[in-house]
Simulated assay, not measured.
Amino acid sequence: MSLERPLPEPGDTVVLMPANALVLGGDLGGTSTRIVIADHDGKVVGRGAAAGGNPTSHPASAAANFGQAIHQALAGLGDGPLDPTMVKAAVIGAAGGSALSKPEVRAQFDAAWTGAGLVCAPDFIGDLEVAFASGTPASDGVVLIAGTGAAAGLVRDHRLIRTADGHGWLLGDDGSGFWLGREALRSLLRALDLGEPIGALGEAVVAAVLPDRDPDAVAQREGYDVLRDDLIRTVNSRPPVLLAELARTVVSSYEQDDPTARALVKRAADLLTETVRRVRTTSDNGPLVLAGSVAGDSSPVGRLLRQNLRDHFPGDVLTARDGVGGATWLALGALDPALATRANHTRLVS
C-alpha cells in the first residue's frame, strides 16, 4: 500500500470520499482477534475483540471470531451502531496470513466480512507490516518479530519486500521462544546422556515438563535413563509448539545466573541479530522495530538483542506498540495519504 497518491490525469474519474467515511483496522493473532474502526481524525469510534483469528490453525473458528469482533466494533462505543457501508478502507494484519491464499479459507473470511454488511474490499497483510506500522510512522525500515516464532522483514513504502526466517519450528525460527524451549530441553537430555549434573535450568525443565516427578529421582544416576525416556515420551506426545512455554523457564533460570540459561539467552540474541542482518545492511538508516515477547524490553534476550543491534546498525531501535492501531493507521493512509499523519499515528497506537 503506497501512501503516495499520483495526481489524476485529465479525463480520470475522481472519487471524493464522504466526510464521514470510516476506516477499519484489524489484528488477527493466534490468541486474539481485534478490530478498530476510526474516523478521519483518527478517533476510535468502534472496538471489537474475540478469540484467536489465525487462519492457519483453525480457519473456521478463526473466521467466526473475525466476524464476531467486526460485529462488536460496528456496535459503536455508545453513540449507536455504525453504518458498515461508511467503512471505505480496511487493512487487516494476519498471523499465518498466507493461509488466506487458499480459496476455501478466504471464502470463510469473506463470508464473515460481507455478513457484517461491509462493502469495501479488505486488504489483508502480514503481521510484520502491522508490527512495523505500530512502532513508527516511517515508510522504510526493518521489523523483527520474536515470540513463539521469529521472522524479520524489510519494509519499503509501508510494504514488506523481503523477509528472513519465519520458517516455522521445524525449519527455523532461530532465537524464538520455541527455539529457547527446545534448546533448554536438548541441553538437559545431553546432561542426562553424560550422567552430568543437570543444574538449575535442568531441574526447572523437569519440573515444567514432569510436574509430578520426584525431585530426589532427578539426583539419582540410576534414575537418569527413566527420566530421559519420560521427558522424550511426554514432549513427543504434545504439539511441538508447546515447547515455547519453556522459554519462561529459561528466563527464570537466567535471572538465577544459571550458566546454561545465560548461554542460551546470549545465543538467542545473536541468532536474532543474524536474522536482522539478512534483511538490513549497515548502510540502511531507517528505524528497526522489535515486536514479540522474546524481543521485548523486559526479556533478557530483548535487552541483549537491542545492544547487539545498536552496536552493528545505525538508526533507531524501536518497540512495536498496538498492532491493531498500526493497521488502522495504514487504513487511514489507504483512504487518503494525507490522513497518515504522525498525530494520527500517535493517537491510534498509544
Rank of each mutant, 00 (worst) to 15 (best):
E104F: 13
G135H: 00
K102N: 01
G172M: 04
P197L: 10
G172D: 12
G115D: 01
L154R: 14
W179D: 14
G195H: 04
D140M: 00
E203I: 10
D173C: 11
E196Q: 12
T163L: 09
V143N: 02
R106K: 01
G181A: 12
D165N: 12
G199K: 00
G117Y: 09
G153E: 06
P103K: 01
R182E: 11
D123H: 15
L170S: 09
E203H: 11
R190H: 13
H158M: 11
F124M: 01
G177R: 13
F124K: 06
T163R: 15
I125Q: 10
L170H: 09
W179C: 07
A191N: 11
G135S: 11
S187K: 02
L192V: 00
G126T: 09
A184F: 13
G135R: 10
G141Y: 10
L201P: 05
G175Y: 07
G202W: 11
S139H: 03
L171G: 01
R182S: 06
A200N: 02
V105R: 05
F178S: 11
F178N: 05
P197I: 09
G202I: 00
V142R: 11
L118F: 03
P137N: 01
D157Q: 14
G141P: 13
P197S: 05
L180S: 04
C120K: 02
I198Q: 08
R156V: 15
A107F: 03
L154P: 05
D173H: 00
P197K: 04
G149I: 01
G153A: 11
T114G: 01
P103E: 14
F132L: 03
A111N: 03
R190Y: 04
Q108F: 05
G149M: 13
E203M: 02
A138T: 09
G175E: 06
E203K: 05
P103D: 14
G202F: 10
T136L: 07
G117R: 02
G149F: 10
L171K: 01
